[in-house]
């Protein structure tokens, strides 16, 4: 039981060997929400010592995450008071609608400023570079907030990416696959998939939803081998895929290989 529960962790832990920066992209669809991966990662990161999360929330208020994480056994209010969980409430953030691009950029620039400040403060005081995680829930709503300018959202992502290389943070992004799947040039999604070191896709089962299996997850992990560690070239990297199914509970996520559930 213990082993199966940690399938998601095991898959993600692969990258812990090399200390490079990494980007985790979670893609979900209307039928199956990928939010549980976000919750799982919050809990996992906060359970590590001297870790810090900068959470950019576009979709849900703090109380929502707080209640869910409390059931997972993690007190977000306390973590926020301790300064380990920076919650940036972007629920009502709306870039002013103007012809000038600068107006629209303004909102995202100030948001980036907040993130940067939080990251810099933590890295200067604690000196532990690998412990900061930036989470964005979710990127498609950031696009909406930026009045549909995926370029601005992309710029924002690239700025965040500089943080991952400068300070060694992890970037976790939630996105919706089905929104982009029937677009002609889904630049944002293509870019994200390109930048991703770990790509997690949450889908419903092809046979529909069941009470025992809530969906399936496919993980695509890009290895950074020891040789080209430090360099950031995807072409030479190995990939590893793993598929498993999951069942979400209030206090954990049960992951298992297809057919192994009794």
């Amino acid at each position: 039981m213990n082993r199966t529960r940690n399938l998601l962790d095991e898959a993600l832990d692969l990258n812990n060997d090399n200390k490079g920066s990494r980007v985790v992209v979670i893609e979900d669809c209307v039928e199956t929400s990928g939010a549980f991966v976000i919750h799982h990662l919050i809990k996992r990161n906060l359970s590590l010592p001297s870790s810090l999360i900068v959470f950019v929330a576009f979709s849900q208020p703090f109380s929502h995450y707080e209640r869910i994480l409390r059931k997972l056994g993690c007190n977000l209010v306390m973590q926020r008071e301790n300064g380990r969980f920076h919650f940036l409430d972007m629920l009502s953030m709306q870039c002013p609608d103007g012809e000038e691009d600068k107006l629209c950029e303004g909102g995202l620039v100030s948001l980036y400023g907040k993130i940067q400040k939080a990251v810099e403060v933590s890295s200067s005081t604690e000196g532990n570079k690998n412990s900061v995680t930036i989470m964005i829930d979710d990127i498609s709503l950031m696009e909406v907030a930026a009045n549909g300018s995926s370029n601005h959202a992309l710029d924002f992502l690239h700025y965040c990416l500089t943080l991952t290389s400068d300070f060694g943070c992890t970037l976790v992004i939630l996105s919706h696959e089905d929104v982009y799947s029937n677009m002609e040039k889904p630049m944002l999604m293509l870019q994200m998939e390109y930048l991703a070191d770990v790509l997690i896709k949450a889908e419903p089962l092809a046979t529909g939803l069941a009470t025992d299996v809530h969906g399936q997850v496919s993980l695509l992990i890009y290895f950074l081998t020891v040789v080209n560690r430090g360099r950031y070239e995807k072409g030479s990297l190995k990939t590893k895929t793993s598929n498993f199914q999951f069942k979400i509970r209030d206090n954990n996520v049960e992951c298992f290989y297809p057919g192994s559930q009794t």
């Binding site: 109380s63 209640r67 869910i68 939803l209 069941a210 009470t211």
Partner: peptide, 8 residues
């Protein structure tokens, strides 16, 4: 509401 468990 306030849970991550999907309603099936």
């Amino acid at each position: 509401a306030n849970t991550q468990v999907p309603v099936i």
